[in-house]
Simulated assay, not measured.
Amino acid sequence: MQESAILSELDLAIINALQIRPRGEWSRIGAALGITGATAARHWERLTRERLAWIATMPGPRFGDAGHTAHVFLSASPSHHTELAERLCQEPAAATVTRVTGGHDFRVDCFTGTQESLDQIVSERFSSLPGVMRTETAYVTRVHRQSSSWRSGILDQRQSRSVSADSAATPSRRTAFDAVDSALLDALGDDGRRSWAELAALCAVSPQTARRRVEQHLASGYLVLRCEFATSAGLPVREASLILNVPGRHLEAAGRYMAGLPDCRVSVEVFSVHNLVATFWVHDLNEIHAYERELEARAPGTVVFSRSVTLRTYKRVGHILDREGRSVGRVPLPMWRRG
């Protein structure tokens, strides 16, 4: 792999390690990469200082047990695209905002604590934004793969196993959610590698309480930590999505097939005029055609509702991005604010 002009091969390896273990000890990550823990920490400090990489907090695979998720597709007049993108980025429930090709102009991934709040955002706030001509909502009903499961593949199998190995006992799951949890997860959202002592000081609890509660929420699957990076500075990938209508008898198998592809970032079943959405990071868009042909063989009767390419990502999991994909701000997700 060619070295990026901004991210070195070592930078990319550290990012891959943190995709596997976002709060991994620097000593373990350094040992897996053949460097000291101090060197690994120093590289990460530069990446975060220059806004080239960060650890994001996002709803986990079990979020749907208590919360609600939807993909909202918007069509808007071209003269309002810039203003609309800015307004969408300021909506806390709009976790990810992208400008896309295909049948719509924008795709917005929304997370809310209640169905009522989600419906209000879509039917009232989004539809009244400048230039919006049409909205279409796809409610997520089953998650086969989240973007937090995607790996860049820089590390070899031995290195990956070394980073991921863990002998610690799995903490109990936490289902309660109060003001202390809200504060902890907000603070963690600003910096997913904050120490337990830092989180404790910010939230007026003991380091033991901070660690116990965060680890319990992670164990519950309610939230996950995800290592993000500015793709323009690293891997030369393009984001593309297939929006599909799959016969009901094949839907689950089709979702699992998409989820098993190494390029797949997201594979979810949805309730809308279509029923499956799959998003990929690929080096060549021709790869998507190959996946499409294989899916049609596995699930006869599948119809491609839309194909889209992401032209620009304005916001990703609460982090506002500049044109180079750097994190330049954050709008906290609303589900962290309860109690």
Rank of each mutant, 00 (worst) to 15 (best):
G153M: 04
L74K: 01
V140H: 00
V180S: 13
A197W: 11
V143S: 01
L202S: 13
S148H: 15
V140R: 04
Y139A: 08
P78R: 00
M133P: 04
M133T: 14
C110E: 07
S182K: 07
L155M: 13
E136Y: 15
Q208W: 09
F106Q: 11
Q208S: 14
P92Y: 06
S117R: 09
S127E: 13
H144D: 08
S167Y: 02
A168V: 13
S123G: 04
V132Y: 05
R99I: 12
V97H: 01
E91K: 13
V72L: 15
F111R: 10
R134I: 06
R211L: 04
Q146F: 00
T98R: 14
S164I: 02
V132G: 02
Y139V: 13
T98C: 00
T98E: 11
R193V: 02
S167H: 06
L155K: 03
Q120G: 09
C89R: 08
E83P: 00
W196G: 07
A168W: 10
S75N: 10
A168Q: 10
A76E: 09
A200R: 11
S182E: 12
D105Q: 02
S127L: 14
R151M: 00
P92M: 05
V72F: 12
L118Y: 00
V163I: 11
V140P: 00
C110S: 04
E86K: 10
D156A: 05
F177L: 07
T112M: 01
L185N: 06
P171T: 06
T98F: 06
I154K: 01
H80R: 15
E124N: 04
Q159S: 00
R194W: 12
A200E: 14
A138K: 08
G192T: 05
D166G: 06
T114E: 07
F126T: 03
A204C: 14
G189S: 13
F73E: 09
G192Y: 03
G103L: 15
A169V: 12
R145G: 00
D191W: 11
S128H: 04
R161E: 13
D178V: 06
L202N: 08
V163F: 01
R193W: 02
S75W: 09
R158F: 07
S182R: 03
A76G: 07
G103W: 13
G113N: 10
A138V: 09
L118E: 02
V163C: 01
P92D: 01
T96Y: 10
D166C: 04
L84A: 03
S128R: 06
R107H: 09
S152E: 02
R99C: 08
T141M: 04
L118F: 02
A197Y: 08
D119T: 05
A179F: 14
S149Y: 03
A201S: 15
A95T: 14
E198C: 08
S164N: 03
Q208R: 10
P130I: 05
S182Y: 05
D190C: 10
T101N: 01
T96A: 05
A138D: 08
